[in-house]
Nucleic acid binder design. Sequence first.
DNA 1: AGGTGTGAACCGGTTCACAGCG
DNA 2: CGCTGTGAACCGGTTCACACCT
Lengths: 265, 265
Amino acid sequence: MATGRTHRPATRSRGIPEATVARLPLYLRALTALSERSVPTVSSEELAAAAGVNSAKLRKDFSYLGSYGTRGVGYDVEYLVYQISRELGLTQDWPIVMVGIGNLGAALANYGGFASRGFRVAALIDADPAMTGKSVAGMAVQHADDLEKIIDENGVSIGVIATPAGAAQQVCDRLVAAGVTSILNFAPTVLSVPDGVDVRKVDLSIELQILAFHEQRKAGESPVDEAEGAVGVEGPAAKVTKPAAAKNNADRKGPDGDVPAVMPA
Amino acid sequence: MATGRTHRPATRSRGIPEATVARLPLYLRALTALSERSVPTVSSEELAAAAGVNSAKLRKDFSYLGSYGTRGVGYDVEYLVYQISRELGLTQDWPIVMVGIGNLGAALANYGGFASRGFRVAALIDADPAMTGKSVAGMAVQHADDLEKIIDENGVSIGVIATPAGAAQQVCDRLVAAGVTSILNFAPTVLSVPDGVDVRKVDLSIELQILAFHEQRKAGESPVDEAEGAVGVEGPAAKVTKPAAAKNNADRKGPDGDVPAVMPA
DNA sequence: AGGTGTGAACCGGTTCACAGCG
DNA sequence: CGCTGTGAACCGGTTCACACCT
């Protein structure tokens, strides 16, 4: 998901599909809400609705964990909360370090979402000496020089990178060398890590770009026969000339009709 | 990805697979970097390495866009940058609104990643009167009462939600009613939207939980036969009793041996 | 020779539909 | 009878391997 050798390929840990793992937190959240409202049991249908998936998928997902439901009744909320928490490893608590305490880093540090569910921010780290000692989210920011020591002393195995893109790989290397084996990367870069280290990335602008793609398609859906033109692509005039090579024939096509407004040169 | 009917199901816009769309921004970023270094052409192998995917996948992805490469040579960097930008709809610029200017919202507003690539923050909106008028990232925060007007006047079709979970659905409904058809949701809730509206979510704590899952497995890989025990699951003692129903037999199993330390009652 | 473009095999994941149990 | 649990069909996406072009 981020680098050459990143997400466990064959190692598909004891049979639970990756896609299922990714949904467990969703179920857990929905179940926690039910638990707080003291709802004793839920059907796959109800829980699925709350989690935003369909019930068949949910039942299949749970079937990988075991047979935790009661036929004709549904699932015991408390019991499931515990089973999923355990499966996700949230019955223990995970000390994490955050590197890069800028706007985003500070916001993340202030975000309560961690602490609530098994995660504990063990340290905030920044390379800027001016930041050292400053208090963010009630913790003193520590200097990057001490990164290795901090990780070692706190037994940290999960790191969050919220540095500028340019510093990310370097920080990542140090984290890994110090023993971190899971990284959540907010910097807009592809991180390269050795086998056995997991990286997940969260990228703002990528998400927006994906939305823009679909948005663009929506705009050009009814107007002309089938997308193209009508939209707002307007006149990009001469922006890029052409593949350099490729003779002068009105050669290859994009899956639509032909290369659109471009190639005026 | 977020609600009952969210991500275009059959509508798979003019043939480009969703998985490919999700990677285009990655390629674009890598290409932009090459472009800045004035590299004229790249092979699929090189570009794939820079984007963190394998070359077969990259070539297949590009083949959906058209035949933009030159056999025996590679791809023209500038040309590809333009083609991908156009495909993603980044040749036009997208006004977006951000709702919820707390820690996270402010951090996002300050994040440069938008502006650079076709996105323009048209307005920052918050429900707290105390925030109204305050300057964040060089813009005055506007009050939520004006949400509809702002969206309408700016022709906004993409909204970012960074409110607390409790307010998210309500804000979402208003955005949709006002004409927004793409939403990037940072609040930890499942948003319910009508058909035709896209929602993508970014959830910090879900990502961490997924990492924790894998991390847990790593720990219990060599010790005991196969995971379980050894890890740090330690003694959750009597935390949850049992499925309520289910007789007294040491009934069903989890895919491992048996239900672990739980069910002591 | 070198690297793209792509049919075909493969694989993980989703959906279907129903057997099985409470 | 109701709802879970799951085999089997199905489908999107990835990987392979090679034909084809420059």
